[in-house]
Design a protein around this nucleic acid. Structure first.
Lengths: 340, 340
DNA sequence: CTGTTAGCGCTTTCAC
DNA sequence: GTGAAAGCGCTAACAG
C-alpha cells in the first residue's frame, strides 16, 4: 500500500540524492542529467509520489490557475463561455476554478475572497444581477490583481471588459421583423437595472422609432430570469391580441413562457414570429426554422481568457485596459414574412 | 494604495504583538483577549490583509475543499447535481472545485491529479463515458483518499456510490406506455458499454417481455450523446412507420433528433407518445404535457456530498462503503392513451 | 551537473 | 493571554 505523504525528501533519502536535485528533476530542469532524472522519476513512481501544489505555489507565488465567477453554470450561455475559457487556459497551462454566484452579491464577494486567498493569478467574472457596487473590484485591481469582466461589464473607468454588442443586434433583429411586415412586436427583456438588458431594450425601441412605429410600454416585458416571470409574460401576452411578433432577448423566461402555454394547451398562432437569443438549445427546438440571435459565447470565453493572460503576464503599471465588443450574428433560417 | 502582500508579520510588527497571537486572533481563538482581537482585526482591515490559504492549508494539511468531476457542466442533470453539492458543502464550510472531463478519460485522469495535488479533502466523480479502467481510483482510495462515485458507479468492490435506479424506472416507464395501449415502442438509449444505459435498456426490454411484446433490436437506438447521433436516430425512426411510441432515456440525443425533424419540416404524428428523462428543460418544452421521468438530480448532489463528508470525517479504516440508490419519479401529466 | 541553505506564510506545541 | 521556535513541502539563489 502506497503512502499518501511521500515528499521529495523521501525520494531524496531513498536515492541519496539531494532534495533540490529531486525537485529539479521532477520539474524537468535541463540542469539535471537524463540518468538521474530517470532514476528519480522511477523512484517517484514507485513510492507513489504526488506533488504538493500548495507548497510549490506558496514558494513560487505563482499558482497557474485562474478563477471564473458566473451567475449560474446551468445557463447555456455561461457554460459555453466556460468551455471557451477552459480551452484557452488549457493551452496556456492554467487551471480553471469555476464558481457560481447564483446572482447573489454576498456570495459573489465571498467567492472573490476565496479565490484571492487561494492566490489565483487572475479572475474572469460576469457579475451578479444584484451587483451595483464595483468598489471592491476596484480595490483588488488597484492592488495589481488582474480582473476581467465579461458579458456584464464593469461601469468603472480603467477596467478590462469583453462584452457583446447587444444594442446593435437587438436593433437589427427588430428591424428584421419590421422588414418582414410585423408591426406589433412584443419584447421579452430582462431586469432593467441591468445595463445589458437596457441595451437590448434600447435597440428594440430605436428600431421601432426608426420605422415610425410607436413604442408601447405594455409591449415590453421585464423579467428577473425566473420561471414565474416567464409565466407572467405568457399571461400578459394573451391579453394583447394584436401582437404579431415577439423579439426575445431573454430566453430563460421565454422558455418558461412557452412551457406554460404548452402546459395550458394554448398554441401561439403560427403567424406570430419569434426571434430569440439562442443561448439555450431550447430556442432551437421551439423554433429551429426561424430567425435567432447567435451569441458569440464560446468565442467570448476564448477572447476573455487570452486577454486575462495578457494582463497576468504584464506588469500592473503597463496594463492596457480596454473594452472589447463582440458581435452576435442574426441567423435568418427562412423568411417568416407575414402572410396575412 | 493597499499592498497585496500583507502578512501576519506585517500586522505583528505594526502592533508589536507576536505573529502567533495575530494568527490566533485571525482564527478567532478563545485564547486571545477580546481587546487584542479587536486591535488586530482593525489593523488587518487597515492594511488590507488577505489571508494566504495556501500557507494555512500547507501547514494544517486540511484544505476544506472538495473536488467535483463531471463530464459536462452544460448538461442540466449535472448542473443540478452540482447545485445540490454546493448547497451541502456550503453548510459544511467546504469549498467546491468544479471540473469537467468532457467525457475524455485522459483529461479525467489529469483533473484527478490536479485535484489531488491541490490536496482537496475528497472527490465526487461521475466518470467519463470513456472510463473503463478504475484501477487508478482504487489506488487513491487505498491510500485513504475519499472518492465517491455518483450517477455512473464504480464497478469495483468497496467503493461508495450514489446511483439512480435506472432499471426500475425504465421498466415502469415502458410498462406505462404499454398500459396506455402502445405496442411499437422505440427506445432511444445511450452508449451500451455504459452500465447506466444498459440498465435503462434492460428495463425497457424486460417490460416488453413481461407483456409478451417481442423485442426488436432495430427499435433500440444506441447513441454517443452527440448531435449527429440524434440526427441518425431521427432518420431511422422515419423508416419505421409502425412506431407509435418513444421511450427516450437519453434526452441529449432526443433533443437533436427533434430539432432535426423540425428543421426538415417533419412533424412527428401527434399520436406518437413520448416519454423522456426530463434532465434538460428542453424536454419539458417538447412535450410538457406528457409523461416524463424526473430524475432526483439535486437530491443526488445533496446525498452525495453528505456521504463524502462522512467519509472525510472518518478514519480510512472505519469507512463504510455502500451504494445508495435513489428513485426517480414517473410524472404522468395526462393520459396519452392511444386513440386509434 | 549537484549540494547547501534559506524561506514562502502560516499554525502549533511548548514555555512563561 | 502571549511569545519563541520549529516546520508543513517545495524552490531558487549561490556555490562548487
Amino acid at each position: 500500500m502506497k503512502n499518501n505523504n511521500v515528499t521529495i525528501h523521501d525520494i531524496s533519502k531513498a536515492l541519496e540524492i539531494d532534495s533540490s536535485t529531486v525537485s529539479r528533476a521532477l520539474n524537468n530542469s535541463p540542469r539535471v542529467s537524463q540518468k538521474t532524472k530517470d532514476k528519480i522519476l522511477s523512484k517517484a513512481q514507485e513510492l507513489g509520489y504526488q506533488r504538493n501544489s500548495l507548497a510549490s505555489k506558496l514558494r513560487t507565488n505563482k499558482t497557474h490557475s485562474i478563477g471564473v465567477i458566473v451567475p449560474r453554470i446551468s445557463r447555456h450561455f455561461f457554460s459555453s463561455v466556460i468551455a471557451g475559457i477552459e480551452e484557452t487556459a488549457f493551452e496556456a497551462g492554467y487551471d480553471v476554478i469555476i464558481c457560481q454566484s447564483l446572482d447573489d452579491f454576498e456570495r459573489e464577494k465571498k467567492l472573490m475572497d476565496t479565490l484571492l486567498s487561494n492566490r489565483v493569478d487572475g479572475v474572469l467574472i460576469s457579475v451578479s444581477m444584484q451587483t451595483t457596487s464595483y468598489d471592491h473590484f476596484k480595490e483588488y485591481q488597484k492592488q495589481g490583481f488582474p480582473i476581467l469582466f465579461f458579458d456584464r461589464p464593469c461601469i468603472l473607468e480603467n477596467t478590462t471588459n469583453v462584452i457583446i454588442d447587444d444594442y446593435k443586434i437587438s436593433f437589427e433583429a427588430t428591424e428584421h421583423l419590421i422588414r418582414e411586415g410585423y408591426q406589433n412586436i412584443v419584447h421579452f427583456s430582462g431586469p432593467q437595472h441591468s445595463q445589458l438588458y437596457q441595451n437590448r431594450t434600447n435597440g428594440y425601441k430605436d428600431a421601432l422609432e426608426n420605422n415610425q412605429i410607436p413604442i408601447r410600454e405594455q409591449y415590453i416585458f421585464e423579467s428577473y430570469l425566473m420561471k414565474e416571470d416567464g409565466i407572467a409574460m405568457a399571461q400578459k401576452i394573451l391579453q394583447l391580441p394584436e401582437v404579431d411578433a415577439v423579439f426575445s432577448s431573454n430566453d430563460t423566461s421565454a422558455i418558461s413562457a412557452m412551457q406554460y402555454l404548452k402546459e395550458k394547451g394554448i398554441r401561439i398562432p403560427e403567424d406570430i414570429a419569434f426571434v430569440g437569443f439562442s443561448n439555450e438549445p431550447v430556442s432551437a427546438v421551439i423554433e429551429p426554422s426561424l430567425t435567432t440571435v447567435k451569441q458569440p459565447d464560446f468565442e467570448m470565453g476564448k477572447v476573455s481568457a487570452s486577454l486575462l493572460f495578457e494582463q497576468i503576464n504584464c506588469k500592473p503599471s503597463q496594463r492596457i485596459h480596454q473594452t472589447k465588443i463582440l458581435e452576435p450574428e442574426l441567423i435568418i433560417r427562412n423568411s417568416s414574412k407575414k402572410t396575412s
